[in-house]
Design a binder for these strands. Structure first.
Length: 234
DNA sequence: GCGACAG
DNA sequence: ATCTTGTCGC
């Protein structure tokens, strides 16, 4: 059945908490498929104050990182941004774009946390569970957990923990740049997630799948929100 | 009460 | 997330 219909999306935060707790125990930690040959990057963009969301998925070959396919989608949301509930705002449009994919993908990178979340269900885990797809969360900032700064070299990392449990890793993808927050989304293990993120890093701090998805979705948004009269509904 | 708080 | 030029550092 359609992953978008797995549960209600237009819910209160109290209901969202129940859904998150329910889906969190469906998250599986297990080895990634081997070999990984196809990686997707997924990202969302929108105009300030707008609830019209745009999504892009960029599919790359691995380890070459050549673009194989790009899919875009746009969709209205009613869920406001709230820390801890990002997926209730952004996941539906991502699922819609994913449904348009022709390629089969082995793994997806998402912008945000996986299990490094107060209830263990960041957007990467939420999307991973609904699609039953291996996913990794790559956040640009921390949502949950504690850590000490890793060394300054590319590849240096430290544990992201909560109450003694390792939830993810704080990873330095390039020398002397701010870290990225890596956690498994679904059907992955942290050590492999860290290694794959590093192997997807080229000239930028953000690994290629997520970085290219961000570029693609911004271009898509700029092309499709010009002339739309609902984009600045303040 | 205070500080934290993905995108 | 988005709005933005120049500018500091490798």
């Amino acid at each position: 059945m359609n992953p978008l219909s797995a549960h209600a999306w237009d819910v209160s935060t109290a209901e969202a908490v129940i859904i998150q707790n329910d889906l969190a125990h469906k998250v599986r930690t297990e080895p990634l498929p081997s070999p990984v040959r196809v990686i997707a990057g997924m990202d969302v963009s929108y105009n300030r104050f707008s609830d019209l969301l745009f999504a892009s998925i960029v599919v790359l070959s691995f380890p070459e990182l050549e673009v194989l396919e790009i899919q875009n989608a746009s969709r209205q949301t009613h869920f406001p941004y709230q820390s801890g509930f990002l997926s209730f705002r952004e996941a539906p449009v991502l699922l819609e774009a994913f449904g348009q994919l022709r390629q089969k993908v082995d793994l997806a990178f998402l912008d945000g946390q996986g299990i490094a979340h107060p209830r263990g269900l960041g957007i990467a885990s939420h999307v991973g569970v609904l699609l039953d797809l291996p996913t990794i969360g790559v956040g640009k900032s921390k949502l949950f957990g504690q850590y000490t700064d890793p060394g300054p070299e590319a590849g240096d990392w430290s544990d992201l923990t909560y109450k003694g449990k390792i939830l993810g890793a704080v990873l330095r993808t390039k020398r002397n740049v701010s870290c990225v927050y890596v956690s498994i989304g679904h059907r992955a293990v942290l050590a492999s997630a860290i290694e794959l993120v590093m192997r997807c890093v080229r000239k930028h701090r953000i690994p290629e799948p997520t970085r290219l998805a961000h570029e693609a979705v911004n271009q898509f948004r700029r092309e499709h929100s010009a002339g739309d009269s609902q984009e600045d509904a303040s």
